[in-house]
Nucleic acid binder design. Structure first.
Length: 911
RNA sequence: GGGCGGUUAGCUCAGUUGGUUAGAGCACAUGCUUGACAUGCAUGAGGCCACUGGUUCGAGUCCAGUACCGCCCACCA
């Protein structure tokens, strides 16, 4: 291990190497008992004097939303995993046994679609291959892709415990799924029945309500005339799906609708067919809408299905699974695609003079969430879970604050959904998935749900046949918090890590996944699976569109990692992700989005290079107070200031992380490192480090201490670069890892308001001098003289203590604290009323200087006037809190003083 | 149709229970081979905080309404 950092920061190789070190050391397994990975023990690898704080035994547990086995990394994963990693690393560094449980999801339809497409390229279908060989093919395929996505998650630095990686389709997991199915079945919460479900004619399977995404579309509504069978008249119905009229078995009107009351019970001659259908009265009909008469197609519409049931209407399924017209329709329509059939139906109505009108109509149409095909409501035999009994405890858990949402508003949405919950269609007509553990006996007609495979009928010894269908993939995902820890077995992991701490995921899957996990946790384990649900925003492009493959507006995180590094990716994601907002990135300009992170890393790298070449001999900082190594009286103002600032940054960062405000935590670290430490402190101590003035060893000790703290502070957000640098700091022992070091704790003894205020004055003086130089065109290299007319003891003190710093940073040869010199000079009045004066002789444009001072004075005079008005307002004085009034009085005094100083200056210059 | 979120600098966004002269990064302008860094340093310009009204001593912040953008939910065919 070389002691040097390379002159240029290049994340590419560095990050891979660092990650290997962490893995090798077993950093990712929770410390204490129960780790499956035998690596270096948590305590063994730590420097005892350094990390002596006790480990709290309250574990931090979070479950990774499992990416699809066939997924390749996109920014959604990047965001989600970075957030989880930051919180996990933070918890780990605070001494909590931290478990981040990773996994992959077998993802039913999505995965089967992928492999079916591959097979299609070979000119085959899954039916050509047969169920067994097709599934073998699928397993082989996902064995490969699974590693791809897991590897990609590692590349962004995810410190998940890979030894515990779960897969929703592995053997053990299947046991959990069966256990749950059988338990619900035995409890009577799972039933099978013929209902209207959402059918995807492309995927050839049923979908749950959640999987059929409603999208508003501009469509048409056709008004069709149906003649009465006895020729005594006709009636007009309106429909958005004319092709379904071939399956009409009735027309419904509102029972109290005066227009139609007399017709109830009469028969209609259904056009294009030779069928006669009745007119029925039903409350579900809205007399205000359309013509007030509804065609009833019980096999193709949810409402119609219910109306049909009430009136005992026949159910005619007019479509094949592929959504072509079935044999139940007249020959000329058979085999037509549903949309072609629609055209033909409309054309025939028109030809018959029965097409009344076509209106534009905007309505919601369901689409398959996997392939986008318009779903067909279809009568079908499926398995369902009765949800109301499961929803009840889930509602109560939220009401009782057993689980909370961040941001809070999601709690209402969760509640609304659970209150209106409908039964969950869990069977899918796929091959890829957990096969439904139900066996049928054709001999005696019995059916059996079982935890183990059955062959013969327990009733009649007849041969059994297993249900052909598989379970919805979410029927396994909803068990993640339990099954990933070994449930239904009562494992050590389960005892120790259930319930988890926080779930971090996207709001898109609040219903699909989060709510169902809560229900499952309560039902099968009696406890909510996590106490907090942090729902983060969505990654969008600059037009606020969701990033997606089809829109081509995605950003490939691997691309970003290669170009800018994982740390840069993480920094950008974290700093742009405020609670409750979306993350907007520009896919057309990666530089704009990710350069800030890269630049910050580079800054840190260079600050480290500088320090490393100047820290020799610095004592390795000890845990606890600064005064263990340095006596307070030896510290300069700048030292005291940076120590106090560092402590403030730690506090801010901790507060922010506690509230999931990761962006604030990142920005606290950023500003501390870049502005306070690099721009001011390092510049201030250079003379001491170079040996030009005494105090070098103290400066080194403080710089080391503060820098070390900064690296710990930032580590959860930018783990690679901080780790790489930290290991190079003097005195590190081989194998010592920042990833396992302790996060800094706020230290009461470091706070020093006096130092904060006084050094701020130093900064003001320097800035004012630089401003004067810039405004008056003073050559950059030229040394000047300056005088400060100090208005406060604090200013006098600050300038005495940091005279050299001011002179160095503002290039001042001689800095005088005293009365104003006479003659032409540029000047500025500072916040405490002190005046900075730079005699520039002929260089200064007197008229300009006078104008500048006058403008500044007028601005302040305006503020003073406002302030006086405010303070003379009796209402204000009477009602505002004393502290506020006090503050306002102080401001008035300061500004008044300020104005008079400005006038003094003008007078002195003879303006 | 119902519900929710957003509207602050050219861009992306902070602004936590109302109380300094509304902040950051990027972009922009000017100047800088300053013994870590030009992926940098310094200085600067840039804002009727969407609009209208209200509450209040005081509103970017609270309330009502309007406009636009976005999201979620919904069995008016």
């Amino acid at each position: 291990m070389s002691d040097e950092l390379s002159p240029t920061y290049s994340p590419a190789g560095l990050e891979v190497g660092i990650y290997r070190q962490w893995e090798k050391a077993g950093v990712f397994a929770p410390s204490g008992h129960g780790s499956r990975v035998m690596g270096r023990g948590a305590l063994e690898g730590r420097n005892a004097s350094h990390d002596s704080r006790p480990t709290t035994q309250d574990p931090f547990v979070t479950m990774m939303p499992p990416p699809n086995v066939t997924a390749s990394l996109h920014m959604g994963h990047g965001l989600n995993n970075t957030l989880q990693d930051v919180l996990t690393r933070w918890a780990r560094m605070r001494g909590r046994p931290a478990l981040w449980l990773p996994g992959t999801d077998h993802a039913g339809i999505a995965t089967q679609n992928v492999v079916e497409r591959l097979v299609a390229k070979e000119g085959q279908t899954r039916f050509d291959l047969g169920r067994g060989p097709f599934l073998e093919r699928m397993h082989a395929y996902v064995d490969v892709t699974k590693e791809t996505i897991l590897g990609q998650l590692r590349s962004i630095g995810s410190s998940a415990d890979w030894s515990r990686t779960y897969y929703t389709f592995d053997e053990h997991y299947s046991e959990a799924v069966r256990e749950v199915f059988v338990r619900l079945y035995e409890k009577g919460l799972i039933y099978r029945g013929k209902y209207i479900i959402n059918w995807c004619p492309r995927c050839l399977t049923a979908l749950s309500n959640e999987e059929a995404e409603k999208e508003e579309r501009d469509g048409k509504i056709w008004h069709l005339r149906y003649p009465l069978a006895d020729g005594s008249g006709s009636l007009v119905v309106a429909t958005t799906r004319p092709e379904t009229m071939l399956g009409d078995t009735g027309v419904a009107v509102h029972p109290e609708d005066e227009r139609y009351q007399a017709l109830i019970g009469k028969m209609l001659a259904l056009p294009l067919t030779d069928r006669r259908i009745p007119i029925v009265g039903d409350e579900a009909v809205d007399p205000e809408f359309g013509s007030g008469a509804v065609k009833v197609t019980p096999a193709h519409d949810q409402t119609d299905f219910e109306i049909g049931k009430r009136h005992d209407l026949a159910q005619i399924d007019v479509m094949t699974p592929e959504a072509r017209m079935a044999e139940t329709v007249p020959l000329r329509f058979q085999g037509l695609d549903r949309f072609d059939a629609r055209k033909k139906v409309v054309a025939e109505f028109e030809a018959l003079g029965l097409l009344v009108k076509i209106d534009d109509h905007r309505h919601a149409v369901g689409h398959c969430y996997r392939c986008g095909t318009v779903v067909e409501p279809r009568l079908s035999d499926q398995w369902f879970v009765k949800m109301a009994p499961l929803a009840k405890p889930a509602l109560k858990a939220y009401a009782d604050k057993k689980v909370k949402f961040v941001p809070e508003r999601w709690g209402d949405i969760y509640t609304q959904w659970l209150e209106g919950i409908r039964d969950w269609c869990i069977s899918r007509q796929l091959w890829w998935g957990h096969r439904i553990p139900v066996w049928y006996c054709d001999a005696c007609g019995s059916k059996h749900a079982s935890r183990t495979d059955l062959v013969t009928c327990p009733k009649c010894r007849g041969l059994l046949r297993q249900d052909e269908d598989v379970l919805d993939t979410w029927f396994s995902s909803w068990l993640v918090p339990m099954a990933s820890l070994g449930w239904p077995e009562e494992t050590e992991d389960l005892k120790r890590f259930y319930p988890g701490t926080v779930l971090i995921t996207a709001p898109e899957i609040l219903f699909f996944w989060v709510a169902r996990m809560i229900m499952a946790g309560l039902e099968f384990r009696g406890k909510v699976p996590f106490h907090t649900v942090y729902l983060h925003g969505t990654v969008r492009d600059t037009q606020h569109r969701k990033m997606s493959k089809s829109l081509g507006n995605g950003i490939d995180p691997l691309d970003v990692i290669e170009k800018y590094g994982a740390d840069a990716l993480r920094y950008t994601v974290i700093s742009g992700m405020a609670v409750g907002t979306d993350l907007i990135l520009d896919p057309k300009d990666l530089e704009i989005s990710f350069a800030p992170g890269r630049n910050f890393a580079n800054k840190l790298w260079n600050a480290a290079r500088f320090l490393l070449s100047n820290l020799h001999g610095a004592p390795r900082p000890l845990a606890g107070a600064y005064r263990e190594v340095i006596r307070r009286e030896e510290l300069t103002l700048a030292d005291r200031w940076i120590i106090a600032r560092c402590d403030a940054a730690v506090r801010e960062s901790a507060d922010a992380l506690e509230k999931f405000r990761l962006n604030d935590a990142a920005s606290a670290a950023y500003h501390f490192i870049w502005s306070d430490f690099a721009d001011w402190y390092v510049e201030a101590i250079k003379p001491r480090l170079y040996g030009d003035v005494p105090g070098g060893s103290i400066a080194r000790a403080v710089a080391y201490r503060v820098f070390d703290t900064a690296l710990r502070l930032l580590h959860p957000v930018m783990p690679f670069i901080t780790e790489a640098i930290w290991q190079k700091l003097p005195g590190r022992t081989e194998g010592e890892l920042l990833a396992r070091a302790r996060w800094p704790e706020a230290d009461q003894r470091a706070s020093d308001d006096g130092a904060l205020a006084e050094f701020a004055l130093v900064q003001e003086v320097v800035t004012a001098l630089r401003q004067i130089r810039a405004e008056n065109g003073v050559e950059p290299g030229k040394q000047i003289d300056a005088t400060v007319v100090a208005a406060t003891p604090a200013m006098r003190s600050a300038l005495t203590l940091e005279d050299a710093t001011v002179r160095r940073l503002a290039k001042v040869a001689k800095l005088t604290v005293g009365p104003a010199p006479t003659g032409a000079a540029a000047s500025a009045v500072l916040s405490d009323g002190s005046t900075v004066i730079v005699p520039l002789g002929g260089m200064v444009d007197l008229a300009k200087e006078c104008a500048k001072l006058a403008a500044e004075r007028d601005r302040l005079a305006g503020m003073v006037a406002n302030q006086e008005k405010k303070l003379s307002n009796e209402q204000f004085v009477a009602r505002a809190p004393a502290a506020v009034i006090e503050g306002e009085r102080k401001k008035l005094a300061e500004w008044t003083e300020h104005v008079s100083k400005l006038n003094d200056r003008r007078r002195a210059l003879g303006c």
